[in-house]
């Protein structure tokens, strides 16, 4: 009690310890700082994309007359226009579905966090399972998108410097446009997909621990000072961050 009184009388002095300037637990703060550093990693990739994108020629002709060429950066709605089972001719439809899936799984995650605040283990389990399902669905969609991107279209696209038609995409050349286009696509969506994959794995681990009632008890030795179900909140932060990055990847690759 004496300690508390000392703090009371010295209000405004933050250098004696024993207070929480950020009013957040240690674990949550560290998650925030990790996410900030991860945001730097993604920013460096997206800044590279911006620099390379604007140091290449843009397509200036009529939209109907557009064709793939090494001379200009491709128009996204001409590259991403295939949907599973339906074929070509649906610009940005599939990526729209993927975006919806990821936003939806972000919502189920925040519902799991909300259920955790109410200590409702059944609800946390339910919403975490939906989140895991959304994550797997997104990963499956991305696998399909990559496969289609790598195989390309039967008629091929851009003509290389020797006059040969290029089919599909790899890290050396691609049928859609200049080589950096596919390289950046693979690196950035791949790095994001890897984050989604780790997020799903972490969600599965936390689901397992929630189901065994580990987070019901606030007196755990492993995480002193944590609220019950705070771990759901922390992995929730990570999962929302993955959704947030997709918002920027989506704008960079599919809209601009």
């Amino acid at each position: 009690m004496a300690h508390a009184n000392t703090l009371e009388t010295q209000k405004g002095i933050d250098w004696n310890g024993g207070n929480e300037p950020f009013k957040a637990s240690w674990g949550k703060l560290m998650m925030w700082f990790f996410l900030l550093s991860d945001a730097f990693s993604f920013s460096s990739l997206l800044i590279t994309y911006g620099l390379i994108r604007y140091s290449h020629n843009a397509y200036h002709g009529e939209a109907e007359a557009f064709k793939f060429s090494l001379d200009w950066w491709p128009v996204p709605e001409k590259v991403f226009e295939a949907v599973p089972f339906l074929g070509d001719g649906y610009p940005l439809v599939f990526v729209g579905i993927m975006t919806f899936i990821l936003i939806m799984s972000s919502v189920t995650m925040v519902l799991a966090v909300e259920a955790g605040h109410r200590r409702d283990r059944k609800d946390v389990e339910k919403w975490l399972l939906w989140t895991i399902l959304g994550g797997f669905t997104f990963l499956g969609s991305q696998a399909w998108e990559w496969t289609h991107f790598i195989h390309g279209t039967p008629e091929g696209g851009a003509i290389d410097i020797y006059g040969n038609v290029i089919y599909g995409a790899n890290l050396i050349q691609n049928q859609y446009g200049p080589a950096p286009f596919a390289n950046l696509f693979f690196f950035i969506t791949g790095f994001h997909g890897f984050h989604v994959f780790s997020g799903v794995i972490i969600n599965i681990i936390v689901f397992y621990l929630v189901a065994f009632g580990v987070y019901d008890n606030p007196h755990r030795e492993t995480d002193p000072g944590a609220e019950p179900y705070e771990m759901v909140e922390k992995v929730g932060l990570y999962w929302h961050f993955v959704d947030l990055v997709w918002v920027f990847v989506f704008t960079a690759f599919y809209l601009i």
Partner: peptide, 9 residues
């Protein structure tokens, strides 16, 4: 750096 990209172009 987007501006710089235009300059490289």
């Amino acid at each position: 750096l987007i501006y710089e990209g235009g300059s490289v172009f």
